[in-house]
Design a protein around this nucleic acid. Sequence first.
DNA 1: ATGAAAGCGCTAACAG
DNA 2: CTGTTAGCGCTTTCAT
Lengths: 313, 313
Amino acid sequence: MAHPTLEDVAARAGVSRALVSLVMRGSPKVGKERREAVLKAADELGYRPNVMARGLAAGRTGMVGVLAADLHDPLFAALHDGLADEAARRGVRVLLAGGGGRPARERAALGELLDLRLDGLLLAGPRIAAAEIERAAAGCPVAVAGRSLRSARVDCATGDDAEATRLAVTHLAGLGHRRIAFLNAGPGRSRLEKAYEAAIAAAGLTPVRDVPWRSDGAPTSVVAVGDATGTSALITLLRAGLDVPGDVSLVAVGEAPGAEAGGVTTVAAPAAELGARAMAALLDRIGGGTGEGRRITVPPVLTGRATTRAFTP
Amino acid sequence: MAHPTLEDVAARAGVSRALVSLVMRGSPKVGKERREAVLKAADELGYRPNVMARGLAAGRTGMVGVLAADLHDPLFAALHDGLADEAARRGVRVLLAGGGGRPARERAALGELLDLRLDGLLLAGPRIAAAEIERAAAGCPVAVAGRSLRSARVDCATGDDAEATRLAVTHLAGLGHRRIAFLNAGPGRSRLEKAYEAAIAAAGLTPVRDVPWRSDGAPTSVVAVGDATGTSALITLLRAGLDVPGDVSLVAVGEAPGAEAGGVTTVAAPAAELGARAMAALLDRIGGGTGEGRRITVPPVLTGRATTRAFTP
DNA sequence: ATGAAAGCGCTAACAG
DNA sequence: CTGTTAGCGCTTTCAT
């Protein structure tokens, strides 16, 4: 028998279907004797409950969907580690769908996930319009990780890259660096640059701009911002013939691919925690009814690796 | 109404449920008039078919599951691009599950996917035992990408890293390099090292081993093997004070994270094609009944970037 | 061309 | 404690 059903198990164990259903869900009100008979029959037949049928009948599936806007983003893998752990801890299954980095695909994937009628949805770094998310949230509990929405019924967990930038500057300043440059290759330039400037000012320093390497007032350290900037920045510096961290120290803001392998000191939101917090909020919402959408901010963490060193004149 | 059903649509359109079902699936044998009435009602109600119910009733879901052994592997994202395209092209939905890099988790995720009773399963880089895969394949069409199984009922699509290594050596030799070193940081050392040696011999050269940089017989080029080797190798070389590709050329075998951003010349299996081929095989198997398990080998491709240059004495 | 009826595999009240 | 009876939302014969 390819896929034995509840009924097959019941027949083999000589009991009713309902009894088997109870046993499969671990109900306490079944006699030891019968329970074991059922378990034995199920095992012999290789019975596995059909999740679809179960979901249809119960009205809940015990599964949540996770929509990854972009599977290429290494951030997502870390995020997934955290949210999967949290879900496993609470006995919930996770199903993924990938948005392929394109809003159109993401929208389609969201629709597919919605059509599955899962218990909830977690959107990781969504790029689609807020209104679309809002609409999805009307029919299904929704949480978002990596983007903040102003919505009453969506929980959001985000990092704080302005704070991360500030932390990077502070760290470098604490190491004795006085000339700290800012390097950007990504969106959000002005916002993070402002954070940089504010942090520089707060440390009693002045921004370093467009000063050539090895010149007199050359920076002794760099804060690199933007997703792919960490390792690329290191390579750029090395290519310029600089010793890192001998000549300049480097701190990358945000988890760049290969930052660990490349030994780049990084300050970023702990992605796993971001995922776990978002999942926790989602499961709370699913379980505990409703409430205002939560705004969760996870503070950035500095991971010291091999590209920073105290400034020595 | 939160989730209108077929029945709601039927009532609103003044027809029977069966009629609506036909229309939703685009059957040609429905009068134009009624069809439009149904479509209109469905639209007004915001009707979305429940895929669980549909799957249960139809015996097919129109979805395949993809199990990613390790979401962290950037290879998977590329693989997914290819397989998702192929699936979309053939009107099939894709659902993902992540193995978290640990066989135990992968096993669990496989079970969950199996319990969903999808139309088929695609295993990406599975680390679990062949016997387990075989067992899964007994109850559900299965294809594997990134690992070769000797199984009659599982289709496998793989790259060929020995061939990739050979190609890397040949490319460098073609560029005029005579002293080509081999750098390894990963499993499979002996196999790839043999491929390196064979290619070196075929090019009429001799292997370069343990010769210090800048010494007399120092290598003028390097073939770096192993998953994280590409960018790390570049960083290592730069750190050693070498100009790349001025002093040495570098070819990484396998798609390393950040290889593109770092501008590292790479020779690797085109992951998207790997995914597409595996998905195609799976869908063929689902559609066209059975047949011997296919063995698909996708030849590696060289992506010239900024770390190689012709040798000039 | 359209509707009625019988399930798909399971859960959830109910009775016993 | 256990079995019976209805569905969950949809597809699919089979009549009409």
